[in-house]
């Protein structure tokens, strides 16, 4: 697949939140204000991109030569946890302003399904290193797109008359469902029509 096809696949066709349900906990938890949503989205994109490449390298240079493929899950989660910790320290050192903005989201990202999910999906699809990088970035971008749209909807919802039982989480799920319905417009046919596959 070409890089543009991978990009379109992970941002729209297989959007991590709205189609594959990966990373739903932060999607519901951190989407109350759009400033927080942007911070979370940028941090997740950062981590999915970096961890896709690092997990790919660990898998092909460490696990495959030693015939330890079955330890994939265990190594990936440790790699991701250390990577997040490292990123936190590097950002704190290089740019305190960026750390101020993203710092509170970084620890939450270790247990984000989207990050471990993209690392495993890259291996399952046997992508090479550049394709993994593109897929990691695209998955993060799709996450950001969905969470920012959702936070804008929820800011509007706060001013709307909503029945008591539906206030808060239920109406957020139903709005997400309607968004997912509109994302169904993107499917594999999009790639065929654009002559990408």
């Amino acid at each position: 697949m070409s890089y543009i096809a991978i990009l379109l696949t992970f941002v729209f066709i297989n959007n991590f939140i709205l189609v594959q349900f990966l990373g739903l906990c932060p999607f519901i938890g951190v989407s109350k204000s759009s400033a927080n949503a942007i911070g979370m989205g940028v941090s997740v994109t950062f981590v999915t991109t970096a961890s896709s490449v690092v997990a790919w390298a660990v898998y092909y240079f460490l696990l495959v030569p030693m015939h330890l493929e079955y330890l994939q899950t265990l190594t990936f989660i440790l790699v991701i946890a250390s990577l997040v910790q490292l990123l936190e320290m590097v950002i704190q050192k290089i740019s305190p302003a960026l750390y101020q903005a993203l710092g509170i989201y970084l620890p939450l990202i270790t247990t984000n399904c989207a990050v471990l999910g993209i690392a495993i999906i890259n291996i399952t699809n046997s992508y090479n290193v550049m394709e993994s990088f593109t897929a990691g970035f695209a998955a993060g971008a799709g996450f950001t797109l969905a969470i920012v749209l959702m936070s804008n909807i929820r800011e509007k919802l706060d001013l709307m008359p909503v029945r008591r039982a539906f206030r808060g989480m239920p109406i957020a799920f139903i709005s997400a469902g309607l968004m997912a319905l509109s994302f169904m417009a993107f499917d594999k046919a999009l790639l065929t029509n654009l002559h990408l596959v």
């Binding site: 008591r164 039982a165 239920p170 109406i171 799920f173 469902g177 994302f183």
Partner: peptide
């Protein structure tokens, strides 16, 4: 058909959560 696709899951979760909140309240 939509119930077995992604939007159905989110819509159903919303209605079930509202139902459980309502009975709890």
């Amino acid at each position: 058909r939509v119930m077995s696709l992604a939007p159905g899951a989110l819509l159903l979760m919303g209605y079930l959560k509202a139902f459980f909140d309502w009975t709890g309240a």
